[in-house]
């Protein structure tokens, strides 16, 4: 039973990583940049939801929607102000800018909301119960875990349909393959990149709320470690690939929880990264990474 319980926790944590990893992977796919500020957008989303619900007493769903709106705007603003002027710059310049934006958001949050812990409220409390009891109470699955996994699955299906079936989704794929050729089709590449940042940031808001529902201590650096883990998950699964983000995220979450439970809490992160290194040694493009073939 404890094994099952760890597995469920792992999948739930992994689902959060997967949702965050999607933001990394989509932005990387299209803008060919690593948006290291993505993790901090998660933190902003969590704060917005926290204040909306705990301070202003709004219903949780309104808090989540508000967080999504704010993060979407924030993501587009960051892209417009910090990354767009560097579109032609070397990728190192963009990377350093992204790290700068990350610190800017963390310090901004500290200034606005202080560095003190905020206890994120548990929204998912039905009839005084925070979870689903199974096998005569031997196994409890928290509502948060269930909602997280369901949210992750719904988001994956929605994104797969979006990129596979809609006009703008296909335009995104076209841009991620060849921006010049996409431009020659009449696709506005700048708008498409902006839309990608918007979607990634809205997902970051959802991830922020889910993350803090499971691990309720909210500080300005809340997003940074999960951000790095999710980036790892994106690379693990094959950066640029949407199913890869899901697979990488879930595997990473499960490995992390198992390592914590059965090996060592302190070493869990080291174990996670060791697994990443082994995977990359064997398959440098990640588990589902695309082999880039050129045909002239």
């Amino acid at each position: 039973m404890t094994f099952l319980s760890h597995l469920i926790n792992g999948i739930s944590l992994g689902s959060v990583y997967a949702i965050i990893a999607l933001g990394y992977t989509m932005v990387y796919g299209i803008a060919k940049m690593l948006n290291f500020a993505h993790g901090d957008v998660i933190m902003v989303g969590a704060y917005i939801c926290f204040f909306a619900v705990a301070t202003y007493g709004l219903p949780p769903i309104v808090g989540v929607l508000l967080a999504m709106v704010v993060c979407t705007a924030l993501g587009m603003l960051i892209e417009r102000l910090a990354y767009k002027p560097l579109r032609q710059a070397p990728s190192l310049a963009v990377l350093i800018t992204a790290i700068g934006v990350s610190y800017f958001l963390q310090n901004g949050a500290q200034l606005l909301w202080s560095a003190n812990n905020k206890m994120f409220p548990n929204f998912l409390n039905f009839g005084g119960k925070t979870g689903l009891s199974l096998f005569d109470g031997q196994l409890t699955i928290s509502w948060t875990a269930i909602v997280t996994v369901v949210a992750c699955v719904v988001i994956m299906i929605a994104l797969t349909l979006f990129t596979g079936k809609t006009r703008i989704g296909k335009a995104m794929r076209a841009c991620s393959e060849d921006k010049g050729a996409a431009e020659l089709m009449g696709i506005n590449v700048n708008t498409t990149i902006s839309v990608t940042f918007a979607i990634g940031s809205a997902l970051a808001a959802i991830a922020g709320v889910l993350l803090c529902s499971a691990y309720p201590i909210l500080v300005p650096t809340t997003g940074s470690m999960p951000g790095i883990k999710a980036f790892t998950a994106a690379v693990f699964g094959g950066i640029g690939s949407i199913p890869g983000a899901l697979l990488g995220g879930v595997l990473l979450g499960v490995i992390e929880i198992f390592a914590k439970a059965y090996i060592s809490t302190q070493l869990s992160d080291a174990i996670v990264f060791a697994v990443l290194i082994i995977v990359l040694l064997v398959k440098p493009t990640g588990l589902l990474g695309k082999q880039i073939r050129e045909k002239v």
Partner: peptide
């Protein structure tokens, strides 16, 4: 039609044509 054709390699033939008709 650019040099080297620059079709979208990972998309289907139909999707490439859809991109052509994007406007």
């Amino acid at each position: 039609v650019p040099e080297g054709r620059r079709i979208f390699q990972q998309m289907t033939v139909l999707e490439n044509l859809e991109m052509g008709a994007y406007i």
